[in-house]
């Protein structure tokens, strides 16, 4: 990190167009260290697109996205060293075992794949008993947990999460909540895309609603009641194209 006072995630005037279709118009958002922002919005509001730009998987048409002082478009490798992305794709090779999957991504990212570390990460998501089994036989929830173990192992500074609670059972959800709280306490920043207004929002410090290609609302979570949130959500997402 270049400057400790800078926010870990800093987005200004971001626009993304696919051909003639404008998905993001003018998005600005900041997330400080130790802070989590929940990003809400209707289908097609551009939540995933914003996440992909932050993860360096897509380039903005205009504006900048900066992570830990590094520009996502111009210095993607520096950004990639610092972000962990959990999206819909699990990044799993079904014919490798759980442990082999973790080792592969760890070594490919330039890290050391110590057996003890791999076991520890698997233990964290309660997959250690299945470490040597091929992932093809896993349930969807187990695959989901394995993809979280990959991120746990990478120790990123910024977590980019797209519906991280989807497909997890109650135990899994509880573990993820605790992990995310600990991640924040350790000085990390979280951007979390979600559709539900349920208890998983408790991780978030702020709630932002994406509508009409911009951040339509950005408020501290404690100041918004559940009813009010539902009303605001309906209000702002109706403007969405």
């Amino acid at each position: 990190m270049k400057d400790a006072t800078e926010p870990l995630v800093h987005v200004t005037g971001l626009r993304k167009a696919f051909g003639a279709a404008l998905v993001l118009d003018d998005v600005s958002l900041s997330v400080r260290a130790g802070e989590a922002v929940a990003l809400l919005g209707a289908n097609g509001a551009g939540k995933t697109t914003l996440l992909r730009i932050l993860a360096t998987l897509a380039r903005p048409t205009r504006g900048t996205a900066v992570i830990a002082g590094f520009d996502c478009a111009r210095e993607p490798e520096r950004v990639r060293e610092r972000v962990g992305l959990v999206a819909h794709g699990t990044l799993i090779y079904e014919d490798l075992t759980a442990e082999e999957n973790l080792r592969f991504w760890r070594v490919l990212s330039g890290g050391q794949a110590l057996a003890a570390d791999l076991r520890e990460a698997l233990a964290a998501v309660e997959l250690e008993p299945y470490a040597g089994e091929r992932v093809r036989s896993f349930s969807a929830g187990m695959k989901r947990r394995l993809s979280l173990a990959r991120v746990v192992l990478a120790r990123p500074q910024v977590l980019l999460l797209d519906e991280p609670f989807a497909g997890l059972d109650q135990r899994g959800k509880k573990w993820l909540e605790e992990y995310l709280q600990a991640f924040k306490a350790g000085g990390g920043a979280i951007v979390m895309v979600t559709h539900s207004f349920g208890r998983q929002l408790s991780v978030a410090d702020r709630i932002a609603i994406l509508g009409g290609g911009r951040i339509a609302l950005d408020r501290p979570r404690p100041s918004v009641t559940a009813d009010e949130l539902a009303r605001l959500y309906a209000l702002h997402t109706e403007e969405a194209p």
Partner: peptide, 22 residues
């Protein structure tokens, strides 16, 4: 072909370091 399943292609892009190693 195998990289298209489960978005592994994105994982290859996200792994920091020289892409020529891939």
């Amino acid at each position: 072909a195998g990289e298209r399943d489960n978005d592994c292609w994105d994982g290859l892009r996200l792994a920091p370091g020289e892409k020529s190693a891939i």
